[in-house]
């Protein structure tokens, strides 16, 4: 199993997290996303015609899209069946819903980070405003979950929905987005970083 990886990518970080949580042996191939734009090179477009990372090579097949790779890894390699709770139909839809939400976080909070850190030319005010709108929704949801005794996005256990949402929320400060206003998100980040085998990525502020 091989992960095409970029060290500063939150989307690659999602995969690194789950590989570690599930203790799956794998190799990493470093991609020069910045400054080399290797993900847009002809060679890489053969691997992923969308020119995006991460990509996971497993059993000779290439799987692209961070959320899809999470589902792949969890459904194939998680003996507990909890990260992608396929045996719990009532929970599965909710998990899928928050996977889609994670994609919206990428197009807003991650965009602001690309602008501020790597100098991408985009409308950063719009990206930040979009992120704040989503973070308000997530903060309300997490606060409601806590009231019902649930620590995680989709219930009482962490799922791939938590992994998918975590990186670009926790890295929001890199893009000039303050998490100060979101106390439930801060508590969720603290719980997340205390998961067994969790590894920190630079840019993540732990509120303690």
């Amino acid at each position: 199993m091989k992960l095409f990886d970029y060290v500063l990518s939150g989307n690659c970080y999602k995969i690194r997290l789950l590989l570690d949580f599930l203790e799956l042996s794998h190799e990493k191939q470093a991609v020069d996303f910045f400054p080399g734009r290797e993900h847009k090179s002809d060679a890489f477009l053969q691997i992923n015609p969308l020119g995006q990372i991460p990509v996971l090579e497993d059993d000779g097949a290439y799987i692209r899209d961070a959320q899809a790779i999470l589902v792949h890894l969890a459904s194939r390699y998680d003996p507990t069946g909890t990260w992608w709770p396929v045996n719990d139909p009532s929970q599965l839809g909710r998990v899928a819903q928050w996977l889609a939400f994670a994609d919206s976080i990428t197009s807003t909070a991650s965009a602001a980070r690309l602008h501020d850190v790597l100098g991408y030319d985009l409308d950063v005010a719009q990206a930040r405003a979009g992120a704040h709108k989503l973070f308000r929704v997530l903060d309300d949801h997490l606060a409601n979950q806590e009231l019902q005794g649930f620590n995680w996005i989709a219930g009482s256990r962490p799922t791939v929905a938590d992994i998918a949402c975590f990186p670009y929320v926790a890295l929001a400060g890199d893009g000039g987005i303050e998490l100060f206003y979101y106390p439930a998100i801060q508590r969720w980040i603290r719980r997340f970083v205390n998961l067994p085998r969790f590894k920190l990525m630079p840019g993540i502020n732990i509120f303690d």
Partner: peptide, 19 residues
Amino acid sequence: NTDTGLLHFQQNIFLQDRM
């Protein structure tokens, strides 16, 4: 190390400083 491996090492360190 490959050039990209060296790059990742360096960028990881610098992002720790950046915060």
